[in-house]
Design a protein around this nucleic acid. Structure first.
Lengths: 324, 324
DNA sequence: TTGAAAGCGCTAACAA
DNA sequence: TTGTTAGCGCTTTCAA
């Protein structure tokens, strides 16, 4: 029995002949080791945990990009040969995440849509359960986070507009205090500075990443004394909202105003004109999440790499054109 | 030890005092039973399995509505107090689904995006592992499927158009042989018949549920000798494509042509005009999936309810108007 | 109503 | 290199 166990787990002390024979018979029998028994004795399962905040789903709100990343995560987990357990998050007590993970002898978790200040996250970090967050800065000996390089992405959007000859460029930023949102705004500011362009009063408007806020923020931009000829919008959904505001004002995209979004959600290719946008790759993000978690679970700490920031790619479509 | 077990599992043979005391101490200690140990001895875990085909994700294709239902499923699982394990589906052998489930002592699975003819599904049904499919007809003693009432939904779309005074109504159907798609077409045909309206030659065009096919199918409809004044499109993404074709032809929605979609994906509210559509409720669908699976796992067979068809709701927005 | 003991299917320490 | 034994944390007979 233990020989079989050793053979199946690729231990060195089994003779090649025996190993071969074990594998042979195991496959004939269609034998699969029982994951529960294994997790019980090893005190660690081969399943990764996903902690996914879905309050917004219950409220009827959609976060299409987050869903894309979750799909990417699923694919990446498949490739790694592990499984993914979506842990229940409803009993939102202070250490409910940790408990749920321990209950299932889960060795590491991915956090999606969770603010870094969430009380449940604290317990995770203190107990040093390997944890990787998406778009959420995490501080802990066995914690990291994965994000797109929001700053560089935003700067690349500005660069694109500058190359098209635009000089009066505005932005619709996300809410203040949210990491990815702040980074995109910083990238915008840096991009403008690098191009030697001034940021006019009122050229920075904030939204909340949802459609309506994009429309409203764009309206404020259009009301500016010196109307911008190009706008970087920090999220595609708001960018679509901006498109609406522009059309309502009787202006045309990209003839009168160019618009660049961020994310590359499906809708970016459904609207007309199709949105030029800074694309985040959900599949690559999923893969990075799994890689980081697995490495965190494998070795001890590796303090110098808290963040893994993936590069974005500017996808030029129909919503940007040379400055008139 | 056994008394504690009994108390925690609400067994009748424990005295109220003891039970109370056990609960008290357990909560003080923050005790949570180990799920692996439990699954091992019970030979059944409290975790539901999700088998989710993601080949399309790897191909870069999106199925926004399916993602919405998965989010709804997650919420419903939370409410039920169980957890959800996403099983790896990459080793696509004939009984890989079954093995993955057994390996994790999972008592029942939900199938998403899997064709009913998939070899892995056969094994599931033969072994009578409780299985619930979404939009996939399943035949088995312990299998059921959940779907929206596609037929009634399509008919309600036709009814809406008829009430607006339309008589020349066409449709962009989904691919033939796909259950939901066939049902929607049947609903369209029945709706027309109930209204006493003829279906003109060429008034039924097929697409593949993706954007481009909607545009192409709509073009064919526009080329008809007697151009329809209203069109029922069996999926929102194709409906958006149809909107494009109509605009390209220099016509306006809803002035010249009314369009009704199906699903109510996010994009339906992002395009202009916003899409009138037959809404499927992803949260309700998720809840039904969990309910059915749990009931299948609880009792023996209940042969008369193979299907659970949820009603849809017509959401009237800007893409439909009275016939000119 | 409670407790003692066996065992779920594995892995790991120890002996052979 | 292989086999024997104990034990992971529970549930469930069986006895008291």
């Amino acid at each position: 029995m233990s020989t079989v166990s050793r053979a199946l787990n690729d231990r060195p002390e089994v003779s090649p002949t025996t190993r071969e024979r074990v594998m042979q018979v195991a496959s004939e029998l269609g034998y699969r080791p029982n994951a529960s028994a294994r997790a019980l004795v090893r005190r660690r399962s081969d399943t990764l945990g996903l902690i996914w905040a879905t309050e917004y789903v219950e409220a009827g709100v959609r976060q299409p990009f987050l869903l894309d990343v979750i799909a990417g995560l699923k694919v990446a987990v498949d490739h790694s040969g592990s499984h993914l357990a979506i842990l229940t998050t409803s009993n939102a007590g202070g250490n409910s995440f940790l408990r749920a993970a321990r209950e299932h002898t889960i060795g590491g978790v991915v956090l999606m849509g969770i603010a870094s200040g969430h009380p449940g996250v604290r317990a995770l970090l203190e107990e040093e359960l390997p944890t990787v967050g998406f778009d959420t800065p995490l501080q802990g000996r066995r914690a990291r986070y994965v994000t797109s390089d929001n700053r560089a992405g935003a700067a690349s959007a500005v660069k694109h507009l500058v190359e098209l000859g635009h000089t009066r460029i505005g932005t619709v930023a996300g809410p203040e205090g949210m990491h990815s949102s702040d980074e995109r705004l910083t990238g915008f500011v840096e991009g403008m500075r690098d191009a030697g362009l001034p940021i006019a009063d009122g050229a920075v408007q904030h939204g909340d990443f949802f459609l309506g806020s994009g429309t409203e923020a764009m309206r404020r931009l259009l009301d500016l004394p010196e109307r911008p000829t190009a706008v970087f919008v920090a999220g595609d959904e708001m960018a679509v909202g901006a498109l609406h505001a522009i059309a309502d004002a009787g202006l045309a995209v990209p003839r009168d105003i160019s618009v660049v979004g961020f994310d590359d959600i499906e809708a970016a290719t459904l609207v007309r004109p199709q949105l030029t946008t800074v694309r985040q790759d959900p599949l690559a993000l999923g893969t990075a999440l799994v890689d980081e978690l697995l490495s965190l679970m494998a070795d001890a700490a590796d303090a110098d790499s808290r963040v893994r920031a993936l590069s974005t790619r500017l996808v030029v479509r129909g919503s940007t054109a040379p400055s008139a």
